[in-house]
Design a protein around this nucleic acid. Structure first.
Length: 227
DNA sequence: GCGACAG
DNA sequence: ATCTTGTCGC
């Protein structure tokens, strides 16, 4: 569904940490933040990655507006980059992109497990993949990486996430009681308000939005079968 | 130097 | 993320 062949692999496989950071600075300048017509969205995909030995197991679950499963695709890829806070994309994106290569139904937007622009250099994994594939993306993280915000007190309540200059880069959102809030930020071709709005619509009784929750479930199931 | 630090 | 059982609270 995506022309992976036309991608510059240099942007996914840096030779070292320094070049990885240079790549992020370069790509962050390409990120486009603008409102997204959520009412025109048909398919929404959720992505998650688990690990088994030296392999990354990625799963993409695509749902329609009714929350019905349209497609589930998985991929197994050898891990090449270590986990370094701020450089998550270089570890997980390769497996995610190979998985997207097998997807038949092209999603209108993809939700990632991690940050969008709420990142030290404005390029979390959602933004990185969004720019490479030129598709709308949103980052939904379970913990904070960058930015300042208050903690929502009531379920359904949100608080703005601001960068060092006071710019709005996302929202913390309490999706379920007795849990830590979600950290939502646009990845690419989306904006904070649209991202928050869409994620709210996808919460179905659990902390995580349905596409992400299901992708996590399948990635864990895969891991259990290949242990 | 000290604290923070997506998955 | 991963290693892991029961258990306290909403």
């Amino acid at each position: 569904m995506f022309d992976i062949d036309k991608l510059d692999l240099e942007l996914l496989f840096p030779k070292d940490v320094h070049s990885a950071i240079e790549i992020q600075r370069e790509l962050s300048g390409i990120v486009k933040i603008h409102p997204l017509q959520t009412e025109r969205i048909e398919y929404i995909s959720g992505v998650d990655v688990s690990y088994s030995g030296n392999f990354a197991l990625s799963v993409i679950v695509t749902l329609d507006t009714t929350m019905n499963i349209v497609e589930i695709v998985s991929e197994r890829v050898k891990v090449e980059f270590p986990y370094i806070s701020g450089l998550l994309a270089f570890r997980e994106a390769p497996a995610i992109i190979k998985c997207l290569e097998k997807v038949l139904v092209k999603p209108d937007i993809i939700i990632f497990d991690g940050q969008g622009i709420a990142h030290p250099r404005g390029l979390g994994i959602a933004s990185h993949v969004g720019v490479l594939l030129d598709i709308p993306t949103i980052g939904v993280a379970k913990s904070r990486l960058y930015g300042t915000c208050k903690k929502p007190k009531q379920v359904g309540e949100s608080e703005p996430i601001l960068d060092e200059k006071g710019n709005l880069i996302g929202y913390s959102y309490l999706s379920k009681k007795s849990t830590n809030p979600l950290y939502i930020s646009p990845g690419h071709l989306c904006d904070p308000a649209s991202a928050l709005s869409l994620v709210k619509q996808l919460i179905n009784g659990y902390k995580l939005p349905e596409p992400t929750r299901l992708a996590h479930l399948y990635t864990q199931k895969l891991k259990a079968e290949l242990d």
